[in-house]
Design a protein around this nucleic acid. Structure first.
Lengths: 137, 137
DNA sequence: CCACTATAGTTACCTAGGTAACTATTTTAT
DNA sequence: ATAAAATAGTTACCTAGGTAACTATAGTGG
């Protein structure tokens, strides 16, 4: 193996998975980046945009864009914090109501994508990726 | 582990690696997508745009864009094929002359990124990614 | 207190990659 | 032989994510 192949394969894999997720979310009117924000908000509760950026390792400008789309769709609210620079982002009742269906769709898509990868391989892959990523950050 | 984490980690990893590569290529005036095309052309020789797309699993429109930038920089030539719909893409002498430096930069960047990941882990990771990817395609 | 610096978020603009719609050729079927 | 279908590439436009430059607020040192 040479390093080119390793990087190339990882890149391909990431793209294929992203495309599959977006395809699955399309009928729900959501994009992958929106889902990632919704998922974090649902599991961690209200967060500021900065906290969302830090958690998802995304720069502020794309986060602004994603959140503005979510606001427009009525899935998220921006509330000014005590620190007036901050905006607290929280899911709306509409989003909480639709969440179970979204979660189900994403989960089933993930399961389909993982179908032919044995569970031990999934664990191994996750472990390797995570330790590599942590070394890079 | 849940599937969300696996997908999330892979996505992050892919982004970090892409960003590092782009940063390393910046002083050379190249982008990652351009490098991937140059690398394929150098190892496989002249290819049509379609063949490049198939090999890199990229759709035709982004390939057109990347190639047009490479043409503008003088690193690549488009030659009409016997089938007049096709365009054969080939590296110019300028590109062949600069290639060793580009290759060295990319290789060293890759090595730095892989520095703390043991070689057995690299092999394992590559194997897992490749078999998963092949199941998906 | 006030000037300076740091931080949160936005805007503008860049590359990467996707789909849809189009043009120009080539192949196929009648 | 020609009409219809398939294919290669381009154009326009979408999301994802990056940097640089900006605004507005919050802290800090003199």
């Amino acid at each position: 193996m040479n390093s080119h192949e390793l990087f190339h394969t990882l890149h391909q894999l990431s793209r294929q998975l992203t495309n599959s997720l977006n395809e699955a979310l399309k009928p729900l009117g959501l994009y992958g980046s929106q889902w990632s924000v919704i998922f974090v908000l649902q599991t961690k509760g209200s967060l500021t945009q900065k906290e969302l950026c830090d958690y998802l390792f995304v720069e502020a400008p794309p986060m602004t864009r994603t959140i503005q789309r979510l606001v427009k769709q009525g899935y998220v609210r921006q509330v000014q914090g005590k620190d007036k620079r901050e905006k607290l982002i929280q899911l709306t009742d509409l989003a909480l109501q639709l969440y179970p269906e979204w979660e189900k769709t994403v989960f089933e898509t993930n399961q389909t994508l993982l179908k032919h990868l044995p569970e031990t391989s999934q664990e191994e892959l996750f472990h390797l990726q995570k330790s590599w990523l942590q070394q890079l950050l």
